[in-house]
């Protein structure tokens, strides 16, 4: 659906990273973790296209929908200027959500940078279902790490990694996760979102680890609803044929085995 969502809050929480709270009841009621909003930032032609953002939280009882975004260009820069009480043109919720297994009690959420956004929403829902939540969260430096306490259920266990070692494990979050694996680890499933190289490494390593794993992908997008075929991701079917699926429609969440890197 297309709606004008009222801005409740739009604040920089760590340098360059913003927390946007919107009020739009139908979107709040219809959203599932993994889905996204396709946002028209200005009412003119510059920038021309909408921008997709993962939903970081949706609260059906209060009509609130959250987005967390980093300023990466003109579009997000303009978005950061939007003030409380103003309205934002949102298309959504769009895309295929995460599909957690009913019978797996441990959920590993693995995020790089602002890729944490959809996993915060997922963590809240899974925790509500009584699942154990382990969050592995990496960034290049501690200044980029979001204050997760504000967003995560209390019971979630958080493991941090920074490339410069300024907080938590020194190195990549994928290595941190790997270092915690022990033979005969209990049954768990992994949900991951972050930069493409990180997801690629994860997918490769998980061929040996063998966890059920779902990845949330990103691609340059035009329509956001499946019509233009612009946001293609290369996939490999079981009979080893390759083809393209749409990040906006069949995705953004894909099984790790599906993606042809």
């Amino acid at each position: 659906m297309l709606a004008k969502a009222r801005v409740l809050r739009n604040e920089e929480i760590v340098p360059g990273c913003y927390y946007l709270q919107l009020e739009e009841w139908q979107i709040a009621r219809g959203s599932l973790p993994g889905q996204f909003l396709h946002v028209r930032i200005v009412d003119n032609i510059a920038p021309f296209l909408r921008r997709p953002f993962s939903i970081a939280g949706a609260f059906p009882d209060s009509g609130r929908v959250d987005i967390i975004y980093r300023i990466v260009g003109k579009g997000t820069e303009l978005l950061s200027r939007l003030g409380k009480g103003e309205y934002l043109d949102c298309l959504g919720p769009l895309g295929t959500p995460f599909s957690p297994a009913r019978d797996i009690a441990v959920s590993v959420l693995l995020a790089g940078g602002v890729g944490i956004a959809p996993l915060l929403f997922l963590a809240r829902i899974l925790s509500g279902e009584g699942k154990k939540i382990l969050v592995y969260y990496g960034a290049s430096t501690s200044g980029e790490l979001l204050p997760l306490k504000e967003f995560l259920p209390k019971k979630a266990e958080v493991f941090l990694a920074t490339e410069d070692g300024s907080a938590g494990y020194r190195g990549l979050v994928t290595d941190l996760f790997e270092s915690t694996l022990v033979a005969g680890t209990r049954r768990a499933e992994i949900f991951a979102c972050g930069p493409k190289p990180m997801l690629k490494i994860l997918a490769q390593k998980n061929r040996y680890w063998g966890y059920p794993m779902q990845l949330s992908l990103e691609e340059r997008m035009a329509c956001g609803i499946g019509a233009c075929q612009g946001c293609a991701v290369k996939v490999r079917s079981e009979d080893d044929k390759t083809g393209y699926l749409r990040v906006c429609r069949e995705g953004p969440v894909f099984d790790f085995q599906e993606v042809a890197w």
């Binding site: 032609i45 510059a46 920038p47 021309f48 296209l49 691609e219 340059r220 997008m221 035009a222 233009c228 075929q229 612009g230 946001c231 293609a232 991701v233 290369k234 390759t242 083809g243 393209y244």
Partner: peptide, 30 residues
């Protein structure tokens, strides 16, 4: 959308680039 005789995979991504007051696409008739 353009229909071809046989199925067509289309071009490798990225297929979309935003431009001043417009966009480029290189879908490749998928």
């Amino acid at each position: 959308n353009s229909l071809t005789l046989k199925p067509k995979q289309g071009n490798p991504p990225p297929r979309i680039a935003e431009t001043p007051a417009g966009m480029l696409n290189s879908i490749g008739l998928q």
